[in-house]
Amino acid sequence: MLTYVPARAWGTRVAAVLLSLAVVYFLVSIAGNSNFGWSTVGEYLFDARILSGLYLTLWLTLVTMAIGVVLGTVFAVMAMSRNVVISTVANAYIWFFRGTPVLVQLIFWYNLGALFPELSIGIPFTSWGVSVPTNTLISPITAAVLGLGLNEGAYMSEIIRSGLLAVDPGQRQAATSLGMTARKALWRIVLPQAMPVIIPPTGNQTIGMLKTSSLVSVISLSDLLYSAQTIYSRNFQTIPLLIVACLWYLLATTILSWLQSRIERHFARSRNVST
């Protein structure tokens, strides 16, 4: 009768000890360094301006990602359409919004009023319809949502398209031969199976958007980073306030990553559950 002794990973243990020591040393030296201004960090961590900036950042991230996912799904399906007109429209959209800097898109939407002073809905080349001054319609927040959302839609459509392509065409055939319409087959059979491929890069995009959304400061919106900048431009506590912003970004990223792993596990259940 043999007793099995698993191989001990000595290398891993040594590395873990050395690394822990290095991390502790690093943390102690930072915490003890008064130049970091830890008391200032504490003072501003829950400052009302910082919190309202955080709120805008989170709100923009969620809203623009939601728009991005919806537009991305629509354009991904359009891009794969056999109808040349439809697929060309989708590809043109993807080409344009991926091909221009999102910063420029934001400024463009913000300044739409300068290009088209009035927006109107009506029958072209007739006097029928209604007009509104563009600037009453496009507030900075609308410009931010349009700019970030349309840009995100282009990236998401590529992610969703690659997910749809990863599903075996036999799945759609089986669904079709059971009497499902193309739309039903997409929603019930193909998309759910594309999710394991779609979710990880979507999580990536969401975390990226958390930080990309800080670009809205150029159209005078006070997101998290811009709020921190506003404060340190007055009191010159640059590093402590940037630390405040980073701590919130890190917390938000941690929560989003956790959510992502929960969602991934949900969609992976057909792969590892056994009864």
Binding site: D168, G170, Q171, Q173, A174, Q193
Partner: peptide
């Protein structure tokens, strides 16, 4: 009402 059975089964994996 016209069923089809495929070489690769094509069961819905999820």
């Amino acid at each position: 009402r016209i069923a089809m059975v495929f070489q690769n089964f094509n069961l819905f994996g999820h």
